[in-house]
Structure formats: structure tokens, C-alpha cells
Design a protein around this nucleic acid. Structure first.
Lengths: 231, 231
DNA sequence: CGCCAAGAGGGAACTGAGTCCCCTGAAGTC
DNA sequence: GACTTCAGGGGACTCAGTTCCCTCTTGGCG
């Protein structure tokens, strides 16, 4: 277990105090280190850039997510797995709601912080997409499907997250995210593994597909694709 | 028609020459303006930041996209509409393939440029999502669906775009993008136009779809979706 | 006890992006 | 011909981020 450096927390606290009372761009690194009572050099020891102090826990969360995805679990369904990985991010936000809401207000106002947040979110999305690419290896459009599903999961997660943040943490974050991710799973298939689909090929350039009405759409599409003989 | 300032183009040319021969971070603004034979102040007249010179045409393209989406077209199906909007971006890349490939190599290497590109892509995604939010107004999960579909369209577009850029522009960009967007439409869409598909509903919770083998997949999916009674 | 190695923290100078203010000169316009 | 206007330039300034080197502690070991 790594011991928590109090200096790092002191810098975050000092930074947010100044950001909130005078604005992000109006606060210099020197202001922060002066308030924290440390040297300017020490700031950059803990945070590689000024933006990083606004997202002090994302590095750890990203490591958690990659560890979660790397830790096997290949018996689970891939889309559900990345949805669970996305829930890890929500959990981090939920651990410190007031801080998350303050940061949300900040990033909403400052374009530079919005841009930085995008690069953070992008790394999460890459982690999910890379995992799905591994699981989809061999499928015809494996990387395409992996990228699209990862983007959809992140978008759904962020939609719910932001709606929760806008409510000042009043509503239930987990419920909102579950609902949003449910939409993605319904679109890309949370297969109940059974999926009763029968395919018969007939002559004359015609394909007949017989499907149970409640079969997941993606499963039907998969069968049609192979029946049509697309690469 | 706005007259094209040659100075702007000269700055882009000088910048890329130096970026390619010595690297992005190793090139200062002073190097660029010295090579272009203009004053340092003039650089920032045309480009608000050093990153902007790498994406000189995205501002115009984003304006084109918002104009396209704002210009009615509400008789068209929403998902197909945003797919067409995404194709505008591809068209811009395709207008200058060698430049696009050079820029791709650059952004792939320089983290700062990758981050900046994300903020550019994000603005496209917001434009698509805002349009869809308008079209989906009133639906239960309208904004959720809009955000997710916009993200999926952008991800599919970028997947195909990058695969084309990696091939040095050898493969056909339009074909790749059409295929990628077709996947998204098959997951979310109910698209337009013709295809020889017959649908018969039978009792007993079963659907039979008869399709010509060369029918476009998205069209088949559309018929299945409506046959299955999905909203 | 003295010595040394290592590492946390600090200070000062430097680079380079981006901003501000004001100057110059070359058009038009009346 | 005086006046405005505006693209362009020059130079000083701020601030983020880097580099180099210093100090102080800590702790191990002879």
C-alpha cells in the first residue's frame, strides 16, 4: 500500500480553493504553491501540468480499469464486461460527490479544462476498445465493432454522469448509469447466450432467416451476415 | 466568396515543412515565421495557437457541417442524416490526401496534437448530437440516444478514416466509411430507399425474412427491426 | 561517532507560447 | 492633400513548464 503524501492533497486543496474563488485561468502556479506553503518546483513533482491538479485521481482510476479488464473474466459477455468497467469510473466520481460537482462546474466553464478532460476520457475509451478488440479478434469487423461499442459505452456513461452532476448529486448515479448502459446493451446485444436462430440457404440467390421474435437483433444480424457470405 | 489570403497558406506550408523535417515540438513559432518571411505577430493573426496550424481547414468544415444539419432536411431519417454529415468530414480529408496522411503521421506521434485533435472531433460530435437531440425531442431517452448515436457515428467514421490514412490513401475512403457507417445504421437506424425484401409475420412468435443475397445488409436489418416490432 | 549515499524539497534561471500595446505603411475616401 | 482604415511588424510582458544545482534530512554502515 502506498503511503499518501499529504503534500499532494494540500496542493489539490489549495488549487481548488483558488480556482473556485478567483477562477482557473486567473490562478497561477505561484499562487497555488504560495497558499500551500511549498516551493513551485514541488508542484510539478506531483502534477505534470496545471490541468492535472484538477483530475488528481483519474490516473489511479484508469489503472484500476485496465487491471479489471486484464484480470481475465473472459467467461463474461464482452459488452457487459466493458459496461462494468465503465461503472468503475462512476464509482470514483461517487466516492467524493461534492468534489466531483465542483470539478464539473469548473470544467464546464474553462475550455482548456474541457479539452484536457477529453484526453482523459479518450484514454478510458481506448482501454475499453482495446479490450473489445481482443475479445472480437477474428470477427470480420472486429476492430470497427470494438471502437463503436466502446464509444457508445463511454457516451452513455458520460450522459448519465453529467445528468447526475447537473443535479448536484441529488439523483442516484448508479441508477442513471445502469439505465444508460442498458440502452447500449440493447442496441449491441447482451446475448442471453441461447438466441434461437436458424439459417437455411437456398438456391436462387435467396436467403431465408427464421428467427424468434424476441431474439436479440445483433444475433440475427450475425447470422444473416454469415449466411450472406460477407467477408 | 472570401478571397484566400496567401499568407495563411504560406504559414501552413512553412510549418509543415519544419514539422516534418525536425518534429513538431522541436519547431518554434519563430522558426515558422522566419521561414515564411513574416512577423511573429502575423502567425497569431491567422492561427490562435500553434496547434491550429496543423488543422487549418477544420473550422470551415465544422461550419459546413452545422450548416448542412441546420438546412432542414427533416424529411430524411435522422441517423442517415448525421451519417451524411459525417461524410462531409471524410470529403475534406479526401480533398487533399497527401496532406491528410502527413498530418495523420504527425498527430500519431505528438501527444499534444492528439489531444488537440480530440477537441476538434468533440466539436463535430457535439454538432451531430445537438442535431439528433432536436430530432429526438419528446422521445423518452432522446438526449441519451442522441449522444450515443453521435458517438457511434463518429467512432465508426474515425475507424474507417484511420484505416484509410494508414493505407497512405491507397484504399477507397468512401467505401470504407460507407461500410463502417452501415454498421452503425444496422445497430441504431431505420434507413431509406430500396431493396428487395419481403417480410411475413406468422403466429407462434416467429418471423421469416426472405432476402436476396446481394441485398444491402442495413436494409435487411431495417425490415427485421420493424418485423420484430422494435420501436 | 563520523561518513556517506539517497532522496525530498527548494530556488533561480531559462525556453517558448500566447498577449498587449503601439508603430509603420499602404491603400482607399472625401 | 488630409483622414481613416487596416494588414502587418516590433518588442516587451506573463506564465507554464524545464533544467540545473543547492540544502536538509534520513538512515545505513564503517
Amino acid at each position: 500500500m502506498s503511503s499518501k503524501p499529504p503534500m499532494r492533497d494540500a496542493l489539490v486543496a489549495a488549487a481548488f480553493q483558488l480556482f473556485l474563488e478567483r477562477g482557473y485561468e486567473q490562478t497561477t502556479i505561484d499562487d497555488i504553491v504560495a497558499l500551500a506553503g511549498v516551493g513551485r518546483r514541488s508542484f510539478f513533482r506531483y502534477f505534470p501540468s496545471k490541468e492535472d491538479v484538477v483530475f488528481p485521481d483519474h490516473e489511479r482510476c484508469l489503472a484500476d480499469m485496465t487491471a479489471f479488464l486484464a484480470s481475465g473474466g473472459d467467461e463474461h459477455e464482452p459488452v457487459g464486461r466493458v459496461c462494468d468497467a465503465a461503472r468503475l469510473v462512476l464509482r470514483m466520481y461517487n466516492e467524493n460527490p461534492t468534489f466531483s460537482v465542483q470539478r464539473y462546474r469548473l470544467t464546464k466553464k474553462v475550455p482548456g479544462l474541457r479539452a484536457y478532460e477529453l484526453s482523459v476520457v479518450w484514454r478510458y475509451e481506448r482501454a475499453l476498445a482495446d479490450y473489445l478488440r481482443g475479445r472480437f479478434a477474428g470477427r470480420p469487423d472486429g476492430t470497427l465493432q470494438a471502437d463503436v461499442i466502446a464509444a457508445a459505452v463511454v457516451a452513455a456513461h458520460n450522459n448519465a454522469l453529467r445528468s447526475w452532476l447537473r443535479s448536484d448529486g441529488q439523483r442516484d448515479a448508479a441508477t442513471e448509469v445502469d439505465h444508460a448502459l442498458g440502452y447500449v446493451q440493447s442496441a449491441f446485444g447482451n446475448p442471453p447466450a441461447s438466441a434461437a436462430v436458424q439459417v437455411q440457404q437456398q438456391p436462387e440467390d435467396v436467403v431465408v432467416v427464421v428467427s424468434r421474435r424476441d431474439a436479440p437483433l445483433w444475433r440475427v444480424v450475425q447470422e444473416i451476415e454469415s449466411a450472406l457470405g460477407r467477408d
